[in-house]
Amino acid sequence: MKSFAFHSPETVPDAFALLNDVSESKLLAGGMTLLPTIKQRLAEPAALIDLAKIPQLSEIAVDEDALVIGAMVRHVDVVTSALVRSKVPMLVHLASGIGDPAVRNRGTIGGSVANNDPSADYPAAVLALDAIIVTDRREIPASTFFTGLFETSLEPSEIITSIRFPIPSTAGYAKFKSPASRYAVVGVCVAKAGGSVRVAVTGSGPCVFRVPEMETALETSFEPAAIASIKIGAAGLNSDIHADAEYRAHLITVMAKKAVAAAIQGL
């Protein structure tokens, strides 16, 4: 690793000030993606601004009809949170399948969402639940947040402070994980809020995306059978040595059915 400076601000404004003032600085959340990237010399920041010492970023709370998860809440905190389990149990299931125990002990929801890895799990939940990404300056709806491969609508030096998940009627997540990396080859999150259904897919394209045809079908009948015959086109989907695009397309339907089944069971 090339040398860098390390800052540990204790408030969000201090973090912003550092990020704004120190050139080539990057925010450090759990570091589960950033540190391997730096180790491989794919990133060479001049300074890291650690968010670990800002207490309010690690809170989980219910605010009106939303579950609010602080940006620095670790995956393990979601897995073990009674509040999350009671309000959106799907998130417990999702978080328990991220990486491995050591990753879950360090990795954070804010880091995952900000990084927008095409095979990360959280973006699917954020998009399916129509969550709000709360930053130090505004609230960004999920629908406009994820803009492309590792791209988001975050401005330079904008800091995610929490994710605000509207509590759904029910939701489910099903993931086909890479047996090697544990990342999603295909992950599908299905959420039902009143009469409206959203289906979000991760791992399959350059960025998380919705499947309107499935949403319509599920709004008519919220059953796995309702989407069983919906075929996703392979065009534009990822293809690699583990899964070709046609297989991924097929898996989207399979995982979507499993996600619906999980949602019905309230998992």
């Binding site: 540990s8 540190l35 890291l48």
Partner: peptide
């Protein structure tokens, strides 16, 4: 893997300043 505040973490993906 080491125990960091009792949690199993990978010490190859943890920065020394985080030990403070």
């Amino acid at each position: 893997t080491v125990l960091f505040n009792g949690d199993a973490v990978k010490s190859c993906t943890l920065l020394a300043p985080s030990l403070d």
